[in-house]
Every structure is written in structure tokens, then in C-alpha cells.
Nucleic acid binder design. Sequence first.
DNA 1: AATTATTTATTGACAAATAAATCAAAATAA
DNA 2: TTATTTTGATTTATTTGTCAATAAATAATT
Lengths: 206, 206
Amino acid sequence: MSKIYVKKEKTDKMQDLIIKAAIKVYAAKGMHGIRIADIAKEAQVSYGLVYHYFKNKEDVLNAIFSKSINIFLRAIENASVQDKTLKEKLGSITTFLFNACREFPEFMYVIMFEVIWTPKFLETRNFVTFTRAFTIFEKILIEYQKKGELKGDINTTVSTYMFFGGLEMILTGIVLKAIPAEKHETFHNLSSNFINQYINGLTAAR
Amino acid sequence: MSKIYVKKEKTDKMQDLIIKAAIKVYAAKGMHGIRIADIAKEAQVSYGLVYHYFKNKEDVLNAIFSKSINIFLRAIENASVQDKTLKEKLGSITTFLFNACREFPEFMYVIMFEVIWTPKFLETRNFVTFTRAFTIFEKILIEYQKKGELKGDINTTVSTYMFFGGLEMILTGIVLKAIPAEKHETFHNLSSNFINQYINGLTAAR
DNA sequence: AATTATTTATTGACAAATAAATCAAAATAA
DNA sequence: TTATTTTGATTTATTTGTCAATAAATAATT
């Protein structure tokens, strides 16, 4: 292991530490209220150190965005490869996001509330990365539509937006405790309720 | 017309002027970037005048929120009274929001991106007002579920969140031009695609 | 109806507050 | 010994909120 490699590893580690803290602050105060001082405090690190690892505040925000998107993308890409049936594919995406929501609520909060549709975010190249998730998802639908498993008159774009929009709103409701879901069982139920309603609106009656 | 009434009318007019400008700025810069100086400029009014009509910045933001929510609520409450069938009710809510999106994009932008789920917003009593929309909607579903028009195993809470989440995401896509919808016809199609998929996922097969 | 007084609206410069970014010095690691 | 990391006080920048001065509108007085 070269010195340069070790150094990079250390740098990555610190950046990750700071980003994680930043995400917590972000979740608590939102895009508008986030302050470098808070991030430093949350990370138990001095104010100046944040500027050692990031050029400026903008740079920290971008890092938050990138990290969030990548996790999100990977889940969808995996699902599109591994599973066989449509229900399996959509089910595994749903399950992944439901679980993430339970295990890393602050993290999901940032993705859902802030990353997806903030104007700041949309300005950047990141938007392209994000819409990739939509495109991957829509491709799955189109594929199964060709196979005749979806009604022919389904507008796959509308369906794609309905999937992510609906899912986002439910997860949001859970994170905010507007939808009660403490128990593991409840979680599982909500997840399957969602996927059932979504699918049965898509698949042709037999 | 009493003097006091005229004065109030003038005050209301100015407040509305400023709020409208604030909404434009909000749509352009988001919650984080909004500045009193920008609002004053957009309203073509001096900096200090904003403070004559509003106590502080907070007060301006709250006014934006209230105005947005009320329009939103009225649409849903109206639909729940006027229309007969489930499809009619859901259809008129959908149509209203689609039209609003076309006619007052900045306004809808604020509702969709900022008002609904920003932490600032959630702290306030406004959240109660907003979830009222969800409750009214869910009552419609429950009513028709009792009549036997919905499958018995439908979770109406999940369905409610799916409705608003899906709709929000599609409208967002349109506003951001990720979904192309210049023509009136396209708009109408998207709207009916949405409602069809949503309903057919809800109603029992006959 | 004209004049004066009083209230209200409007302005923009300025002070106060807040937060970002810098930087020289200290601590630590190589 | 040298390079890198870490610190936090200081500086710089930005933005809120205040305020005294002016303009306009309304009311009172002659």
C-alpha cells in the first residue's frame, strides 16, 4: 500500500465523516438552515477542518447530494438485473427503500425532502444522474409491456412518476410519523399494500 | 364603505402584491436563497416597505404557505361535495391541479417543492391544515369502500399517499419539462392516464 | 373650497446580527 | 526534519431589521 493510497484513504474517511454529520444537520435544519459551524460540531471537528476537506459550503452540499443519489441508483440498477418477474423487480426496489427508511431515516430524509427536487440540485449535473433512476425503471416497464404483461394503453412515463412519487410520499409519511409503522410487520404490510395497488393498476385483468 | 374597510383593502392588496412577488422569488431560488431585497425588487417596492406590511421574513414565508395551502384545500373540499361517482371526484381534483400547474406554474412550484414537506413548514400549525387535505381525501375513499366500490383489502392511507405523491411527482415533471406537455391535449391525456391507472388499481374487477 | 393638521405609506441608508471563508499557529504523523 | 492535519480567533461578506426623513393621503378647521 503506497503512501499516496493511505493518504487518500484517510481523506476519504474524513470526508465521509463530515458528510455523514452534514446529512444529520441537513435532516434537522434543511437546506436553508445548514451551517458549517453546525456540521463541524456534529462531526466533533473544528470549524476550519471542514474547509480543509471541502473547498466551500457549496462543495459540502454537492457531496451530500452525490452520496445520496448513488445509493439510490444502485438499488434500482440491482433490481433490474437480479429479479425475474415484474412483481419481483418492483418488489425488491420497494423493499430496499422501505428498509433504508427504517435503518437510516436521516439519510432517506435528505434524499426525499431535499435532494430530489430542490432547485439548487436541479441546476447541477446531478439531475441527469437522478433521472437515470427514472429511466432505468421505465425501461423495466417497457420491457414487460412488450411481453404483454402490461396493458397496452399504459403510459409508462406516467407510471414511472407515479411509482416514485407514491413511494416517496409514503416513506415521508412514515419518517414524519404521520403513518404509524413502528413494528416490522406493519412495515412489511405497508410495503406490500403499496406494491399490490401499484401492480394491479398496471397488469391487465386476466 | 367605511374608512377602515378601505384601509384594510389597501393593506390586503399590498400584502398580496408582495406575497406574489415572494412566490416568484421562492420558485426561482428556493427557501434557502430567498432574500427580502429580492422580494422588494420583484415587487418593485422599497426594501423597508416589506417590513411595513410584514413583521419579519418569517412572517412573509408563513403568508406564502397559508396562501398556497388554502387554494389547495379548497379544490379538494369542493370535489368532495360536488361530484357523485368516485371517478368524478378524483377526476376533478386531478384536473384542478393539472390546470393550476399550467396556469400558475410558479405557484404550484411553491406548493409542490417547498410547502408540502419542508421542515420549517412542518414545525408550524400549517402542517395540520395540510394533512387535512389528506384526511378529506381518505374519507372519500373510505366512503366508497363501504359502498363496496373499492376492494376490501385496500389500505386507504397508503392509497391516499399514493395519490398525492404520484400526482405531485408528475406535475413536478411537467413543471421541470422532464415530461413534455406543451399542448392542451397532452395535458388532458396525462391527466386521464394518471386517473385511470390510479382507479383501476383501486376498483375491484367486475 | 382652501388651508392646515394628522395620519399613513414609502424610501433607502445604516446598524446589528449572522455566517462564510481565511490564516497563522499548534499538534500530529511521516 | 518535513509535511500534513487540526484548531479557533479574526476577517470578510452577506443579509436582516431599524429608523429617521419624505411623500401621499385623509381628516379637521376656517
